[in-house]
Write a protein that binds this DNA or RNA. Structure first.
Lengths: 335, 335
DNA sequence: TTTGCTGAAGTTACCGGTAACAAGCGAATA
DNA sequence: TATTCGCTTGTTACCGGTAACTTCAGCAAA
C-alpha cells in the first residue's frame, strides 16, 4: 500500500491488468498506431472496465505541453464574444486543443492576473482581447515564449499574431453613412468606454470635425452598457440638445435601448431621430425598425485565429502576423 | 545541463539563488508564516527578480488538489448564465479557487465529454446545469468522489448539492397571471426545448387544462432561441390562430422578438396581444412596453453555490443538500 | 547541566505521466 | 547464412512541485 496515492485508477493499474508496462498503455492512448491491434484492444477494454481517466497534470508536467489554449474575453454577458469564441473553439478542438476561458471585465489588471494564472496552467497559447497590456503582463508574455494572439483591434506592433479590425475607421465609416443621408446634428453615445469604444468615438469626432460639424453632442459613461442605460442616456441627451437629428451609439445594446426610449417618447425613427449601433448583434435585425450598425465579422475572426494558431503550434516560425478582417456598415431602417 | 528541462524558472532556481532548498521556497509561497521574515523577504525578491511562475501541473500532481472548479454552462451567448457565473466566481475566488468554464451547447453528450476533461484536469468540484446526465457521466461523477453541484432545476434525488428553482411551478405561475387578467386564448412559444424549457411548457399546459382551456395554440422548435425567431414564430402563430389573445414565451429573447413583430404588425401590446417571457433579463425592463416575465434570482443562485461549495471543499460531510431559490412573476406593461 | 519543547529549515520519497534510448524478434535483403 | 530493417515493447530518468518525517539550534523549565 503506497503512502500517498490518490486512490484513482492510473496508467499503472491498466498496465498491471493487461500485463504490460505503463508506457505501452500511454502509447496506446496517444499513438495508437504504434501498438499492436490485439494489445490495443485489450488495453481499451481494461481502460473501460476500470474507468481510467488520464491525469492531465501529470501528462502536462512530463511532456511540457498542456494541449490547452487560454482565451481571455472582456465580458461573458456581451454576446459579441460568443461567436469569436465558437470559431476558436471549433477550430482548435479539431487540433486536439481545449480552450480555457477567462474573463477580464475589461480590466488590464485582471488580464494580467489571468495571464499569470494561465501561464502557470501551462497553456500552449494565449488569446487576448485588445492590443494594450500592462507592463508586467508584457514581461510575462515575453518570458513565456508562447504564441500570443491579440484580437479585436489592429496594431502596428503585434506581439505575435494580430487579427482584428480598424475600430477608428469603422467609427468614421458609420458617421459617413449619417452624413450621406443628410443628418448633421449628430450625437455620440458611449458606455464602458474601453479602448475600442474610445477609438470608435474618435472616429466619429474625426469625421464630424472634418465635415465642420460640432462634436459637442456627446455623452459617455464608464458604466457597463445595457439596454436600460441606452434609454436613459438618450433621454438625457434629448433634454440637453433637443435639436438632435441622429445618434451614433458605441454599441448595439445602447442603440436598442435608445430605440425603445424613442418608442416611449413617440419619436419616429429615423424621421425624427436616426439611430445606429455597433457590432451587428442579432437584435439589430429584429427590432422595429431594424437598427443600422457596423457589422463585424466575428465568426471569421474566430476561425482565422484558430487557423493561425494551429500553424504556430505546429511549429510555424514566430514572425509577426497581422490581419485586418474589415467591417461592413449596414444601414437598415433606423437610418 | 539537464536533458529535458523546459528552460523556465523553477522553485529550484529560486532556492539556489537564495541559498535554501526548494521546499522552503514552496513554504514561503503557501504557508508564509512558517518561514522566517527575513528569509521570506529574500525569497520574494528572488521570485520577482527571476520572474518565477509556479507550475500548476506540478503542484496539482504532488498535492492532489488543483484549487480549481469546473463550471459547465449550456450557452455562452445566453446572458442568463453570466450572473450565476459571476456569483460563483467571486465567491470562490475568495477561497483561492479558480473557475474553469466549459460550455455544453445544451448537449448531455458534450456535458459528458466536459466532465471527463475536467476530471482529468483534476478539478476539486464540478458545477453542472440541470439534473439530467448521461449514464456514463453519472458513473464518472460517482467514481471521482468530488463535490458536484446541480443547478437551475430542482430534483428530489440530488447527486450532492442542488440549488435551483421549480421550473414547472414557474410555468404554472406565469400562466396564472394571464388568467388573472382575463386572458383565455393563450399560446405558448418555445425554442431549443431543453429539459427546463419543457418543464415550463408543461407548467403552462397543466394550468391551462386545469382551467378547462385549450393547449393547442403551441409552437416549439429545437432551434436556438433568438429575437428573430421570436418574431417569426409569433407571425406563424397569428396566421394559424388569429384569435390569440396572449402568448407565454419560454424565454425573454422570444418574448422580445415577438414584441418587435407586434410593433411591425401594429398590434397593440397588451391590448391586442399580451406577452410574457421568462428569466427577467435586462431587456424586459427596457422595451416599450416592458415585458412581463418570471424573474429568476440568478445572482443568488451563484452566491449560494459558492457558499455551499466552499463548505464542502473545506471538509463538510457529503450529505445531499437541496435549496429552492424560488422565482418572482413580474407583470409589467405587456400583460 | 540536563531535558523538553518550539520554530525553522532540510531529507527523502513520491505524485502519474512522457521522452529518449534500448532491446527483442521476425521478415526482408544481400 | 549473415545483416539489416522495422515493428513492438521495455528501461530509465525525469518533469516540478508537495507531504511527511527528521534534524538542529535556541531557549525555558527542571
Amino acid at each position: 500500500m503506497p503512502r500517498r496515492s490518490s486512490g484513482r485508477v492510473t496508467l499503472q493499474d491498466i498496465a498491471d491488468r493487461v500485463g504490460v508496462t505503463k508506457i505501452t498503455v500511454s502509447r496506446a492512448l496517444r499513438e495508437p498506431h504504434r501498438v499492436s491491434a490485439a494489445l490495443r484492444l485489450r488495453i481499451e477494454e481494461a481502460i473501460d472496465e476500470l474507468g481510467y481517466i488520464p491525469n492531465h497534470s501529470a501528462g502536462a508536467l512530463a511532456s511540457g505541453r498542456s494541449h490547452s489554449v487560454a482565451l481571455l474575453i472582456p465580458s461573458l454577458s456581451n454576446s459579441v464574444f460568443s461567436e469569436i469564441q465558437r470559431g476558436i473553439e471549433e477550430g482548435l478542438r479539431a487540433g486536439g486543443y481545449r480552450v480555457l476561458i477567462g474573463h477580464t471585465g475589461y480590466s488590464m489588471l485582471e488580464e494580467e492576473r489571468l495571464i499569470d494564472t494561465y501561464l502557470s496552467y501551462g497553456v500552449d497559447a494565449l488569446i487576448l482581447p485588445g492590443t494594450r497590456h500592462t507592463e508586467h503582463a508584457l514581461r510575462l508574455l515575453e518570458r513565456a515564449r508562447v504564441p500570443v494572439v491579440e484580437t479585436l483591434e489592429l496594431t502596428d506592433t503585434p506581439l505575435d499574431i494580430n487579427v482584428g479590425l480598424d475600430q477608428h475607421a469603422a467609427g468614421v465609416a458609420m458617421t459617413q453613412a449619417f452624413l450621406d443621408r443628410g443628418y448633421r446634428r449628430l450625437g455620440f453615445l458611449g458606455a464602458r468606454m474601453d479602448y475600442r469604444a474610445q477609438l470608435r468615438m474618435a472616429g466619429w469626432e474625426t469625421r464630424m470635425k472634418q465635415a465642420g460639424l460640432s462634436t459637442e453632442r456627446c455623452l459617455t459613461t464608464p458604466h457597463p452598457s445595457s439596454y436600460r442605460l441606452g434609454g436613459e442616456m438618450l433621454a438625457s441627451m434629448l433634454e440637453r440638445w433637443p435639436d438632435l437629428e441622429g445618434i451614433f451609439c458605441g454599441n448595439d445594446d445602447l442603440a436598442a435601448g435608445a430605440l425603445f426610449e424613442c418608442q416611449r417618447q413617440r419619436l419616429e425613427v429615423p424621421e425624427r431621430m436616426a439611430l445606429a449601433g455597433f457590432n451587428g448583434l442579432d437584435i439589430t435585425e429584429a427590432t422595429t425598425p431594424p437598427l443600422a450598425t457596423v457589422v463585424t465579422p466575428r465568426r471569421r475572426i474566430g476561425d482565422l485565429i484558430a487557423v493561425k494558431l494551429r500553424e504556430r503550434l505546429a511549429g510555424a516560425p514566430l514572425s509577426p502576423y497581422r490581419e485586418d478582417v474589415g467591417f461592413e456598415v449596414q444601414c437598415r431602417g433606423s437610418l
